[in-house]
């Protein structure tokens, strides 16, 4: 994602990268970033906590004006839990799924909807308008 941010910025569009992985973000070195030290799958907050999501987004958007040098990362002042125990739990698990080459629908109804809508066209190429 940092690569897209760099290309956007090169095209004249200020771009802010959110991040859950500080080392990867620093390595890719996007124009500006906001790091939230939450587990993967929570780049912009916790589920069903709109107040927290809003507070996180406000702190992140602030980076558009507060970061004035290229390559800076704003560390967002939120913690997932009191003692970071989620990080120890993560060391013992990995939730990766096999890299299969067919569309992986969240539910069967989605498959029926999509296949009904797109009969005869390539299901995985290009942009799809909703």
């Amino acid at each position: 994602m940092g690569l897209a941010a760099r290309q956007a910025e090169a095209a004249g569009i200020p771009a802010l990268c959110m991040s859950s992985a500080l080392d990867i973000t620093r390595s890719v070195n996007p124009p500006r970033a906001a790091f939230l030290d939450f587990p993967l799958g929570h780049t912009t907050g916790k589920a069903n906590e709109p107040g927290l999501q809003r507070a996180i987004m406000l702190e992140a958007l602030d980076a558009f004006t507060s970061l004035r040098e290229p390559g800076q990362v704003k560390l967002l002042p939120f913690r997932w839990d009191e003692d970071d125990s989620w990080k120890r739990a993560m060391e013992r698990s990995d939730a990766r799924l096999p890299r299969v080459g067919t569309p992986q629908y969240q539910c069967d109804e989605d498959r029926a909807l999509a296949e009904g809508a797109r009969e005869g066209s390539c299901p995985v190429c290009g942009v799809e308008e909703a």
């Binding site: 799958g41 929570h42 912009t44 907050g45 999501q53 809003r54 987004m57 990766r96 992986q104």
Partner: peptide, 29 residues
């Protein structure tokens, strides 16, 4: 909104897509 991804636990994102796709949050702002 739905998710299809192999590399993270999608349970929370499926319960509330704003975890990874802050469209609702941004509409509010």
């Amino acid at each position: 909104l739905r998710t299809a991804h192999f590399a993270y636990d999608q349970a929370d994102a499926r319960a509330d897509p704003n975890c990874v796709f802050p469209l609702g949050t941004l509409r509010g702002l």
